[in-house]
Nucleic acid binder design. Sequence first.
DNA 1: GTGAAAGCGCTAACAC
DNA 2: GTGTTAGCGCTTTCAC
Lengths: 341, 341
Amino acid sequence: MVTLAEVARRAKVTGATVSNVLRNPQKVKPETVERVMAAIRELGYRPNLTARALAQGRTSTLALMLSNIANPFYPEFVLAAEREARKRGYFLLVCNTDDDPAITRAYLDQIAGTLAAGVIVMNTDLAERELVEVAGRGAAVVLCMWEHVQPTRALPCVTVDFAAAGALAAGHLSELGHRKFGALVGEGSGGPQTVRVAGFESGLAARGHAAKSLVAARTRDSIEGGYEAAMTLLRKHSALTALFATNDLMAIGAMQAAADLGKRVPDDLSVIGITDIQLSHQFRPALTTVRFPTAEIAARSITLALEMVEGTAPAQEMYAVRGPELVVRESTGPAPPRRRG
Amino acid sequence: MVTLAEVARRAKVTGATVSNVLRNPQKVKPETVERVMAAIRELGYRPNLTARALAQGRTSTLALMLSNIANPFYPEFVLAAEREARKRGYFLLVCNTDDDPAITRAYLDQIAGTLAAGVIVMNTDLAERELVEVAGRGAAVVLCMWEHVQPTRALPCVTVDFAAAGALAAGHLSELGHRKFGALVGEGSGGPQTVRVAGFESGLAARGHAAKSLVAARTRDSIEGGYEAAMTLLRKHSALTALFATNDLMAIGAMQAAADLGKRVPDDLSVIGITDIQLSHQFRPALTTVRFPTAEIAARSITLALEMVEGTAPAQEMYAVRGPELVVRESTGPAPPRRRG
DNA sequence: GTGAAAGCGCTAACAC
DNA sequence: GTGTTAGCGCTTTCAC
């Protein structure tokens, strides 16, 4: 491995100068820069980032803690996060926690403040208190997409307006003339997605729907979970004409359940989700959903972490990005004519 | 930040002993171990992995270079890779290259041998020669899933039998009585997936099908690509009763094309893919496909890289994992009765 | 069984 | 402008 010292020797300067050529070239005489660059080229020198990190007291690595990257939301997030990090000269460590606090803790213990200058923590089952402690160890900690976020929290948080997303879905369904609604409430990492449902309920209320026009079911936040919950709901409540899922995966499962029950989407049943993962427009019928600005959230989380790492930490505690927006596709339509009952 | 020196001071030993307690406890007197552990606990000491890496001359980080993590194959791969790495005390850097050689090169230049002890390179457009050079800089380089792999190559490679996968698909379709086949050949990272098609062709030939019973079309390896290519093929060749896609994404696109053309799958048209990504069993009709042992490939890549990093590099140059296997689901069925023509 | 000392490759004052 | 000098926090011989 070629070291800075060897470059220095060859260019007949000291290490300090080589270092300067690389980091503050304007401080070095042009001809020296030239000579050093030549030596670097000839020797094929590459700075050792580990050594640099140790000397600077700061690494160029960020960690992203998420529950399970196989959940289709995360790859889209990671893609955007990694691009933003790379753009700023940082690298991204991806850490799956499997929603296991022990794994989360082990990761945090090992890398926060040593291998990783900053950590972005997506929904997790860890107590916030523990994360505050991690932050105390010298790592920039930013929370991301925590649904049950308190404005008083000690850690900065990048988030979206989950309630508004639910309300948007309610508005859309209501406008289409639906009267009986089913809600599929996901239990994901970070607990049940109740804020979205609350938003949906208040959206319904705002449009004059009675509370009993809504029936809800809790389920796992997955295609399978959505399928099962929709099956149960649809069988039990034949008057339902619209299903709201707190996440796209469940909505997709719900559409499959509808198909298996011989209900056509959207003719007999409208289905709407939240997030707008890629899958949503790839499925048939294409899913109507409330889009989260995923890439923007990811990029914002990275920049926020870096601002903290690099000491230009902004004052605010919570960062909402562009709000959610309705994306109408094929899975929602006018409420079917009422059957006489 | 609590350092090893502070722990040493508190435990009234030297740094060397603290280090030994952490790494070779058997070399230290039990009561000393006890005392040191107590100090560590009281101080909340965590070893600085950056410093350790510099001192040891080896990091505990591996890098995974892939074209784009939003492609559904990769998250499944990354999940398994990260778990294996974590199990062995390593961390995983995820690097998107976007199939851009410049990005790939930049990543490699920066991290190979410094931040990352090893690099797993999935299909890439980089010349192998460049990778060999990277390996020369002291990083363990392992190739993974390269379809056009030569047995003489200089770098170890973890791969599957792509040709066998194609042949398996051919056998299945042939047994179902199909006579006219269409092939959707993907152009992904790493070039066109021609080995799979070659395998498909020879599988067909082995069962006595004439070469002209197959029509092929090149397309992007994506749902959209598969959709378009299938549209073209199905419109042009009305006698086709079976479609083979070199990847599941295209197969899914093909099923959508079939639906839009009013063809029922599998009654009018059978569709088979390769890989068995999660989506394949989630889609309706569920896709028949040839499964790659994705998690196993990922784990093997990691262990191979670590064997090299840790100096126990095995002799072989190429590592095939368990072979591909046929997974029959809903998208394939008996060839429809021949229309008179 | 424990300590002293050198050094991993780099950065950052500060001196010249 | 460039060099000198101390480290960064840890590991690792090698004495004792």
